[in-house]
Amino acid sequence: MTAIPADSAPKDRRRLAVHRVEIGDRIYEILTTACALVVPALVTAIAIAIFAAAWPALTKLSASIITSSDWDVGAGRFGAAPALFGTIVSSAVALVIATPLAIGVAIFLSEFSPRWLRQPVGFLVDLLAAVPSVVYGLWGIFVLIPMLREHVMPFLRDTLHLGATPFFSGAAYGPSMLAAGVILAIMALPYISAVSREVLLAVPRSQREAALALGATRWEMIRDAVVPYAKSGIIGGIMLGLGRALGETMAVTMVIGNRPEISASLFAPGYTMASLIANEFSEATSDLHLSALMAVGAVLFIITLIVNAIARWLVWQVSRERAI
């Protein structure tokens, strides 16, 4: 503390001691800035580390890593096309199932729910996001798969005669693309519904009242006035859910069957990029194998990065409008 005037003239009580360097403020600013810098540093480090590790495989195998279906560790051939295919298909199935449900719940909670139901239903749906992935996997193995095998798959194939299409044909093993899709749907649902609910609630009251004043029914109000207004935010929520589904590892690994084959049927087992890494990474002994797995990780990193960036951008569109 450098109280210059007061110290130099202690008897003159009229002078103010105002000289003092705020070293604390400097330290605080440096510390918080350093913490903030960790985030960009982390993203950069992840990108560099993974691409550096993937580099040998990328140069040696080039595009065949995602175009070839031949994954033979012993022979040094690493074509991860089935895993890429499985990642995309299982996520697509998940979105097809989860999107209508999630938007339905979001509309229910933001528009129609009785007041007393809003909290508990919202909480239960939010809680889906808190259930650990490995618990979903466990439940998938012992509850969902038997149920799919014994009831849902025969129903789809035989009762609905969907077996005539390539998508629902073949034997019902259990572990399958469909099982992965259903599990991923449950896991993506809370993300989609949380974002959708938020953007629906952000739609101005005037928008709703205007529609009702024009004689619209409550459903028409939602369809014509509320949903269009919140559309880009809802799509952002779906993208966010997609990002989750694409990168999800444990639950999928436990139910998808882990077979590196491309099959049109959802009843057939498949593979995803994340489960490929999870299964083989700790057993990878050759440098090329390790590098190939890193390359798969790099592809996954890029895909989720793009999907999440788009999601963020779409949701920000809505929230920025709301903020101004």
Partner: peptide, 16 residues
């Protein structure tokens, strides 16, 4: 980047 990192697959964080 926080939002992007939030959506990063946890397995990628593992290999990192």
């Amino acid at each position: 980047l926080s939002d992007v990192l939030n959506g990063l697959p946890s397995i990628v964080m593992g290999i990192f």
